[in-house]
Each structure stands twice: as C-alpha cells, then as structure tokens.
Amino acid sequence: MDICTEMKSNMYKIVNKKVLNPTVMLMDIEAPFVARKAQPGQFIILRVDEERGERIPLTISGYDREKGTVRIIFQIVGGTTKALSMKDEGEYIADFCGPLGEATKTDGLKKVLIVGGGVGCAIALPVAQKLHADGAEVVSVIGFRNKDLLILEDEFEAASDRLFVMTDDGSAGEKGNVCAPLKKMFADGEVFDEVIAIGPLVMMKFVVEETKPTGIPCTVSMNPIMIDGTGMCGGCRLTLNRDGKRVTKFACVDGPDFNGYEVDFDEAMSRSRMYSDFERHEYEDSCNLFREVK
C-alpha cells in the first residue's frame, strides 16, 4: 500500500452536507485515514482554508470506514464555523487531522445513562450507538432549548432502550432540563454502571452534582479551546481536584473524557469565555444582516 497515493495529496472533500437546525450543520468529510481509526469520543482538528488561519477542534459524531468519511456536526458560533458552514457539498476544506484524543471507554459497561445537551448530542450519539451495538442497556436523555433546535431524535431513539427528550420551553418532549428525568430515576433507585454526560459545561456540571449522591461514576467530555490537538500548546488545560491536590491536564491528549467528579467546572467555564468578545465581533462582521443593524 502506498500512503501518498492514498492521501490524494491532502484533499478533504465535503461529500454530504445537511442543515439540522438554523445554527447546527452536519457534514461528511472524505478523510480515509481518520475514518479508519476513529472511535466514539475522539476529535479532529480542521482548518477551513488557507486564508482563515484558525485551527478548530470538533468531536467526531460518526464515521464510515468503508467510504472513508468522517461525520462532524457543529454549531455556528464564531468566524471559523461560520466560514465552514458556507462551504458546499463537493467543495474541499484545507485540513482535517485526527483522530485525536482518547476514545470513550465503554468496555464492560452493561447499563449506561447517556445525557446529551444541545449540539453535544452529536458527540453523545456515537457513544450511545457503540454501547447499544455492544449489547448494553442504554437510557438516553437529550435536552434542547426548544423544538427548533432539536436534533438527532430518531437516531437516539434507535440507539436507546429508553429515551427522554427535554426542552426548556416544553415545545418538544417534556418541559424541563436534562436533570429532571435523572432526579426521578435516581429517586426510584435505578442504578447504572456509568453516567456519560456531553453538552454545555454548565449542563455537565449539574449532571455531575445530580449524580454525585448516588456514587455512580460520571464521565464528562470536555471541549475547550485548542490549537494543535497533540499536546503542544497547552491552551486546552483544565484543572482536576484529585486526592486533595490540583492537577493540570491537557484535554487534547489526556481527554477529552474526564472523571466529572474531579473537573473544576467553574474554571473551565471561565476559560471557555476567553475570546467571546473576539468571536462575537468576528461573527457579526461576517454577516451582512448584523452589519446593517449596527
């Protein structure tokens, strides 16, 4: 086998593009080497084009080893995701590198509670699918702000033994946040081998707090600001409280999954807002609608 012919001189084609809701988009990208190794929980780093220099991490939400494609589902939050969303099927992106990080550990789990929030559901789905395929009992709770933002309901339905859909305003599923069904199940004495929570930091923080009294292990998936994804920059560092000590870890090589009971969420939330001003300006500048209003 010759690697260089297989690489097709580093071209990463968008072979499928689908709008899941007004701010969330799905893309299948041709990247055979990544597709061959990808596991649930791992991520990739991409660059949209030469002009926009930024490298951004996105967690893998699916892969087709035969076709050599990798699925990403992303929310348009800043300049780079905006630029990515403007690319069409058949077009190419400059760089697509991975799979990076450690895969989610699912070995030996018989009964698992999966909690997904917003676009985090895109990352939770392959984990649910893997567990389901391995014969584990999967209970999924997925939460969104409202009906318009709901994604992947059918896919979760197919991968779960039981599914709870929650929306903040009750416009789909039940009204309330993802913790409501957790409370009930825990109160009823239901036991799981593990709780796996993937979503906004604040959601994961509350899921951890809800789960703590039960003593059930709780894994969270951290998705901090990142550059190289190989441990080089340290921008993705987070702090764990472990045995009374503060331990620094890099999400890119030590994670992205961490023991939820150890993560310093308040610090992670603060760090995630480092460039929020910059991103807002970038996003608004890139959109004519905003420009006219300003």
Binding site: I3, K37, D95, C97, G98, P99, L100, G229, T230
Partner: peptide, 12 residues
C-alpha cells in the same frame, strides 16, 4: 514526499 495532517501515534 511530505504528508501533512498525519499524527503518527494517532492517524497511523
């Protein structure tokens, strides 16, 4: 030949 975006230890 130079192949970029290849993290040895991960991609291969």
């Amino acid at each position: 030949k130079i192949e970029t975006n290849m993290v040895i230890g991960k991609t291969l």
